[in-house]
């Protein structure tokens, strides 16, 4: 069996703030194979973005990776020297950010921002870099790429900017792309186009993809695997079909219930009561227990990671087995 492109084991990313240790990511494990798509799902503040930045080696002080391992193509990334990590970033591991309005530098031409990503990793001529930038823009469906290279980011629409960001991610043919809610800021129709194209490109090139989102419907149509996070911890993991059809954690259950669906038209949406607790004031034991209908005395203990079925992982003492109505 070949090694997965990326395997994260028991990752802990903590922030040492003035008011205490903030455990943004606290024990998360998953793996992504070549050409596969993993959906990393959770509410804002659940630690999913920090997980992405941890893999990129872009966690800034006061944050640090406090423990665990990130293996990429068989190589340990935790503790890798800065320069080696830099050489991987943007070349072997690329990232697409949430808000395309904020990620492209407003005062640099698109061309500059594309070619610099090539020059950072390879010695190529100006003309060669430009040709590759143009091809990448064409690949993501931007019309008349030659002209658009000369433009500034504000001359693009939001959807077009996100395409530029995707094109930049593709420039160096990475083995892994981490996409941090890349379609959240976009219109639904454009979101659909982009999802489709990203999926296609990953299949074609064999790039592994981690898609970070809070939107289960996106994951349902895109991902192969799903990893649900809550308050910095992985709570449930498995193939998309298994997890969405037979959720076992009550948080996942709640998430699925809160997605509006045609089949339940007229019925009230299921809500998860309460809000996610502050990461500084997590209750002991299962962090979901204060919002969970099934919580009991056992839940004051930390639930261990179990594997209730092949290919699935879970942290819960009282797994649900019912299929959601």
């Amino acid at each position: 069996m070949t090694e997965p492109t990326l395997s994260v084991t028991d990752l802990r990313t903590w922030f040492d703030t003035r008011v205490g240790m903030l455990k943004a990511v606290d024990g998360v494990s998953f793996a992504v194979d070549k050409g596969r798509i993993l959906g990393l799902v959770g509410e804002s503040g659940s630690g999913k973005s920090v997980t992405g930045f941890s893999i990129m080696g872009l966690v800034d002080p006061p944050g640090r990776i406090a423990g665990g391992s990130i293996r990429f193509n068989g190589r340990e990334l935790v503790g890798l020297p800065d320069e080696e990590m830099r050489a991987l970033r943007g070349s072997r591991i690329a990232m697409i950010f949430q808000d395309p309005m904020m990620t492209l530098n407003p005062v640099l031409r698109v061309e500059t921002q594309m070619t610099e990503a090539i020059f950072a990793h390879e010695k190529v001529t100006e003309a060669e870099a430009k040709r590759r930038a143009r091809d990448a823009l064409g690949q993501v469906g931007i019309p008349s790429p030659e002209e658009r290279l000369k433009a500034y980011p504000h001359q693009f629409s939001g959807g077009m900017r996100q395409r530029v960001a995707i094109a930049i991610a593709l420039l160096n043919k990475p083995d892994l792309i981490i996409a941090d809610e890349p379609t959240t800021a976009l219109d639904v129709t454009i979101q659909g186009q982009i999802l489709y194209e990203v999926q296609k490109l990953c299949r074609q090139t064999g790039t592994a993809l981690i898609w970070i989102t809070h939107d289960l419907s996106v994951v349902a149509s895109l991902a192969d695997e799903i990893c649900v996070m809550y308050a910095g911890r992985m709570v449930e993991q498995g193939s998309v079909d298994d997890v969405l059809d037979r959720p076992m954690h009550h948080y996942t259950l709640g998430l699925i219930g809160s997605v509006p669906s045609r089949h339940r038209k007229g019925q009230p949406l299921v809500q998860i009561p309460g809000v996610m607790p502050s990461l500084l004031k997590l209750p002991g034991g299962c962090s979901f227990r204060l919002r969970c209908t099934r919580a009991d005395a056992a839940c004051t203990e930390e639930p261990p990671e179990t594997s209730p079925a092949p290919g699935r992982k879970l942290r819960c003492f009282h797994p649900a087995t019912a299929v959601p109505a």
């Binding site: 922030f15 703030t17 003035r18 205490g20 930045f53 944050g63 990461l279 500084l280």
Partner: peptide
């Protein structure tokens, strides 16, 4: 991450 810091404050 900004939200985390704010929360802490």
């Amino acid at each position: 991450m900004a939200t985390l810091a704010k929360e802490a404050a």
